[in-house]
């Protein structure tokens, strides 16, 4: 049974516990299909086939009983997840330079080195003469370091 393309933008076929639809790889990258499929593996059986040069057929089979509306909802959720995966990829690509710059600055920038230098200078300048807890006194010399005696 096929849904009317005017009613639903994603055309799909319904079968016994199964909904299938074709995806154009020019619209949906293979990475997006993989990402969405991976997220559905625990809920349904996912199977991918090649139906054309740039077309992938996705078949989702429910692991238990499923009504037509369940299967339609499943196809819709998969389509939404496809878009989600596409957007994530686009945002990732668009911000990759910023991420690389931020990491490079954190690891290799002068500001980070200066802050470490300033911390070391602060430690050097710290007045360590006061030692009320006698931390600088060696354990043996303090008379408490003997064991069993």
């Amino acid at each position: 049974m096929s849904a009317d393309a005017d009613d639903l933008e994603l055309g799909y076929d319904l079968g016994a516990r199964t909904v299938s639809f074709d995806l154009n790889e020019e619209l949906y990258s293979k990475e997006a299909v993989y990402g969405a499929a991976y997220l559905f593996l625990d809920r349904v059986y996912v199977f991918l086939t090649r139906t054309g040069d740039a077309q992938t057929r996705v078949r989702l089979r429910a692991k238990g009983e499923a009504t037509e509306s369940d299967l339609e909802a499943l196809a819709g959720e998969f389509a939404n997840e496809l878009l989600n995966q596409m957007v994530r990829r686009q945002v990732s690509d668009a911000t990759s330079q910023i991420r690389e710059y931020t990491l490079a600055r954190a690891f290799f920038g002068n500001e980070g080195r200066a802050s470490i230098d300033s911390l070391l200078a602060e430690l050097d300048a710290e007045d360590l003469d006061d030692d009320p807890l006698e931390i600088e006194v060696p354990w043996e010399r303090s008379g408490q370091g003997t064991v069993g005696g």
Binding site: E31, Y34, A37, L41, Y45, V46, F47, R61
Partner: peptide, 16 residues
């Protein structure tokens, strides 16, 4: 179906 799911999961993991 279970075998196909496993093969897909492994294929996606390796692709990533």
């Amino acid at each position: 179906d279970e075998l196909a799911n496993y093969a897909l999961a492994e294929s996606v993991s390796q692709q990533r």
